[in-house]
Each structure stands twice: as C-alpha cells, then as structure tokens.
C-alpha cells in the first residue's frame, strides 16, 4: 500500500477531477450530470476525506506536535466548515440551474481548495507516517475504500 501521504495527495487529485467534471457539465447545461458529479465530489470529500482528517489525522498531528500544531489544524478545520457550506450552495445553484452563481462559487471553492490542499500537502501529510501508530494504514484504507466505492 502507498504511504498515507501519497494516498491523501492522490485523493486530492481525484476529488479535483470530480469537481471539474461537474463544472464541465454545468458549462454544457447538463444539469443532471452536474448534480451527479457534484454529489460524488461532496460525498468523497465530506464523508471520506474530511472525516478521516478530522477524526484521525489532525488529532494524531496535534498529539505529535503539541501547541505548534494548533493554529494549523484550527485553520484547516475552519476551512472544512466553510467548504461544507459552499458545497451546499453549489448544489442549490445546480438545482436552480443558475450557471452564473455556480461559476462564482466554483471560483471561490477552487481557490480555497488550492490553498488548503497545499498547506495539508506541505505542512501536515509529510509528518503523518510518524504521527500515526499504524503509520496511517487504517486511515489510508478508509480513503482507498471510498475511491473503490466511487469507481463501482
């Protein structure tokens, strides 16, 4: 199995592609397809990626780094909280077939994700193998299970 660092980075790329597919469908007015891809993206990122981070990865990082980790994980948790609201707003824009609002939200969400993912990949993931008692095997498996579910 790949390292937890590699698995999480790979999951970022997979989720980015799903969001791009939703945006592509919106640009063609394929609203049903857009809703399908957005829901696949939301499920993967909220129920999979963020849940694993908040329940396992952030606490392990905080235990290892102590107070030095707090401002980073607080910022990342806050980012997740904001993103969950944006995803709901994007789903509403698709439901209302409002491409202009969707595009505005997409621009903001992609900016947030770019910055958020870069921080995780540079400041968090490289330390996880040592921070987790099983070197991230269980967390990695949960992410891979979500990826497999999405493919099936």
């Amino acid at each position: 199995m790949e390292s937890i660092d590699q698995i999480m980075q790979h999951d970022h790329k997979r989720l980015d592609r799903l969001l791009e597919q939703s945006a592509e469908a919106v640009s063609h007015g394929a609203w049903q397809e857009a809703a399908h891809f957005l829901e696949a993206f939301r499920h993967g990122i909220v129920d999979g990626h963020m849940t694993v981070e908040e329940s396992t990865l952030f606490p392990a990082f905080e235990r290892q780094k102590g107070d030095a980790a707090q401002s980073l994980t607080a910022l990342l948790r806050k980012g997740h909280q904001d993103l969950r609201i944006f995803f709901e707003e994007m789903a509403e824009a698709i439901h209302e077939q409002d491409a202009e609002t969707f595009e505005d939200l997409l621009s903001t969400v992609q900016t947030i994700l770019k910055q958020h993912d870069a921080r995780e990949e540079n400041e968090l993931y490289p330390f996880l193998t040592n921070a987790l008692t099983d070197h991230g095997e269980a967390a990695g498996r949960r992410i891979l299970d979500f990826e497999a579910e999405a493919k099936s």
Partner: peptide, 18 residues
C-alpha cells in the same frame, strides 16, 4: 442562517461571509 452573503478573495486566501 449560515449561508454566505459575500465571498472574498485575496492572493493567498478565499472565504465566505456567513
């Protein structure tokens, strides 16, 4: 309640105003 009335972006940050 909780929805964004505005979104703001800088070179290094983007976010909503709920």
């Amino acid at each position: 309640a909780g929805r964004h009335v505005a979104t703001l972006e800088s070179g290094k940050w983007a976010g909503g105003v709920p």
